[in-house]
Computed example of a mutant assay.
Amino acid sequence: MATIHIRNQPVEVDVEAELREFNWTRPRWTGDKLLAASPFRYDQTPSFFVRLEPYGDYPAGTWSDSGAYDSEWASGGLVKLLSFLRNETYGETEEYLLNTYGFSQDTTDIKLIPPRLKVQQARQPLAEAELSEFTTDYTYLESRGISKEVQAEAGVLFDAKSRAVVIPWLDANGRLRSVKFRTVRGKMFWYHRGATPVRELVYGIESAKHKTAILCEAEIDALSWRQAGYAAIAVGGANFNGVQADIIKRSPIEELVIATDNDKAGEKLREQVERVMSGHVRVRQAYVDAEFKDANEALVRYGEYALRNAVDKSEVRPLLSVKPRSLSLGK
């Protein structure tokens, strides 16, 4: 365990355990560092490292990427790295670490900040005009195996200024709630400032009109499943909460085919979704081939067959009860 500061409070975090939740390319674990290919770029060389232990003025969890495309992603701390790996905002990752580890108990100079009670105000949708400045350049995701038709149906756009794919997040009523920007040069992403946090949303829920849907982590994976002919939704990260569960329960979905990433974080998410949704919907577990990290990698390498094969081999999980209506799979 190592001490890092989160919201000005010292927290004892198992840095190595957190990093081992994710698949790394060409990793080498030493006593005090993880060396690997950069998670922020399509990189095959060990040009990235994370400190597992503090070193001088550098706390555990600090990292450096020698081949970074820009200075913002050349170095940083543990929270920034985990927020990328978990596909969350910085604040959501802070909350995860605080909920998991709490404050350090052996420090005498902690200044505890008492919780503030506040009324939760209803979050407002974003104006549709927020998307008006973007174009319909589908080139990047076409190179990832996702057709213009699937992108257009999902409202995918392109930000020429930042060279990023623009992915709208809508609520069940089709109102714009958030926007994700995903660069085409690397893997970096960010969300529209002031939008509804994705932890309070389910990507693709507005189009979940069928009784069966694939559930995955990221938007591009959801679009990959749609390319293969399935209805698909995404939770936007490696965590599933009660708000998202309630959104799905209120939808027409009666069966979830869980198809998360092939890493420890994805496996935990599988178990979490199955546990929370048991008794509310029928659950099946689908796995893309283990040589791939996620659905999009499988789609790019072997095409739609790889995803259909995963669904054909999916495992039905026993449930206490399901909605008494017939089940069907399809887009």
Rank of each mutant, 00 (worst) to 15 (best):
A2N: 14
A2H: 10
H5E: 02
E12G: 09
E12M: 12
E12A: 09
D14S: 05
V15D: 02
E16W: 05
A17V: 04
E18R: 11
E21L: 12
E21I: 00
F22P: 03
N23T: 13
W24A: 03
T25V: 15
R26H: 14
R26G: 02
W29K: 07
K33S: 08
K33L: 09
L35A: 07
P39D: 10
Q44A: 07
F48D: 13
V50L: 11
E53C: 02
Y55S: 12
D57P: 04
D57Y: 10
D57W: 08
G61S: 09
T62H: 15
W63Y: 07
S64M: 08
Y69E: 12
D70K: 15
S71Q: 15
W73R: 15
A74Y: 10
A74Q: 14
G77T: 06
S83E: 07
E92W: 04
T93Y: 03
E94S: 00
T100F: 03
Y101A: 05
Y101D: 01
G102Q: 05
S104I: 10
S104H: 11
T108Y: 14
I110R: 13
K111H: 12
I113Q: 00
K118Q: 14
V119P: 03
V119H: 14
R123L: 15
L131E: 01
L131Q: 08
S132Q: 10
S132I: 07
E133G: 06
F134W: 06
Y140T: 04
L141C: 01
E142L: 05
R144L: 10
K148D: 04
K148C: 03
V150I: 13
V150L: 04
F158I: 04
D159W: 11
K161N: 09
A164D: 10
V165Y: 06
V166G: 02
P168W: 08
D171M: 03
A172F: 06
G174M: 09
R177H: 07
R177E: 01
K180W: 10
V184R: 13
G186C: 01
W190H: 13
Y191F: 15
R193H: 14
G194H: 14
P197G: 09
V198N: 13
R199I: 09
K209H: 13
K211A: 11
I214E: 00
L215S: 08
L215V: 15
A218I: 03
A222K: 08
L223W: 06
S224P: 00
S224I: 01
S224F: 01
W225T: 01
Q227D: 00
A228Y: 05
A228G: 00
A234W: 11
A238T: 15
N239S: 14
N239R: 14
N239L: 04
R250L: 10
S251W: 12
I253A: 03
E254Q: 12
E254N: 14
E255R: 12
E255S: 00
E255L: 05
L256Y: 08
L256R: 10
A259T: 05
N262C: 03
A265H: 09
G266N: 07
E271Q: 15
Q272I: 00
E274D: 12
V276N: 06
V276C: 05
M277N: 06
G279H: 15
R282Y: 15
V283N: 15
V283R: 08
Q285H: 12
A290P: 01
K293H: 06
K293Q: 11
Y302S: 14
A306N: 05
A310Q: 05
V311P: 07
K313T: 00
K313D: 03
P318W: 04
L319G: 02
V322W: 08
V322A: 06
R325M: 01
K331R: 12
